[in-house]
Design a protein around this nucleic acid. Structure first.
Length: 209
DNA sequence: ACGCCGATTTACT
DNA sequence: GTAAATCGGCGTG
């Protein structure tokens, strides 16, 4: 897995424009265990403070601070008490927009990815945002890394160009606000695209008599 | 095939 | 207190 990462200006544009162009690109994470690479097949765009579904909607906090920084950096957040999800910051600094990496196909280091996720089939290794982070060992330590830096352990490399006709879009997964915004993008027919689950409010888990 | 549920942190009301 | 950019296990059909 070699070659120059995507240039920073690739990410320096409207997030909903950049997100579909990111499909087919390759995210690489090198650790002391080895290197795993994933070809991105599904992403979601989140705009800044004007997008009710975005973590930046209510302004800057300690968690989302990276979103307010320069483009081309990884915003990794922890959710549901156990999972990590990764975004790539987009647009000019301060725009606070990001592209959630929802799914991909493992194209390098499959053995290591399987070792990290022994219960998953090969197809499921990075099929879902938290699974993708798990397979690539992306966690808190990777928050803020520059994916355009050739020396960074976490990088994004250009991939084969995806024909625009092969890119499909639809509503984002698991979000309440902005359901009418079709900012989920995926490669049509790719088996590693996550299964679409419409948002269903979960019943409260609290207070039982 | 599908539905329910628990795990358990973070941010916000 | 409670919902959240989730996942895997276990139940039922």
């Amino acid at each position: 897995m070699d070659g120059a990462p995507l240039p920073r200006d690739f990410f320096d544009g409207p997030v909903e424009t950049v997100a579909p162009l990111l499909l087919g690109s390759v995210l690489v994470h090198a650790t002391d265990e080895g290197t795993v690479a994933v070809r991105l097949t599904e992403v979601e765009a989140y705009a800044g403070p004007r997008d009710p579904a975005s973590h930046a909607y209510r302004g800057q906090t300690a968690r989302n601070a990276v979103m307010f920084g320069p483009p081309g950096h990884a915003y990794v957040y922890f959710t549901y008490g156990m999972h990590y999800c990764a975004n790539l910051v987009c647009g000019p600094a301060g725009t606070a927009s990001g592209i959630l990496l929802r799914a991909g196909e493992i194209i390098g280091g499959e053995e290591l990815a399987v070792a990290r996720r022994p219960r998953s089939s090969v197809r499921d290794l990075a099929r879902g945002p938290a699974r993708l982070c798990n397979a690539l060992a992306i966690a808190r330590a990777e928050n803020g890394l520059d994916v355009c830096d050739p020396d960074s352990p976490l990088r994004v490399l250009p991939g084969d160009r995806i024909d625009a006709a092969a890119v499909r879009s639809g509503p984002r997964v698991g979000v309440n606000g902005g359901k009418d915004t079709p900012w989920r993008f995926w490669i049509d027919g790719d088996p590693t695209v996550s299964v679409y689950r419409p948002h269903v409010p979960r019943r409260r888990t609290a207070a039982r008599p």
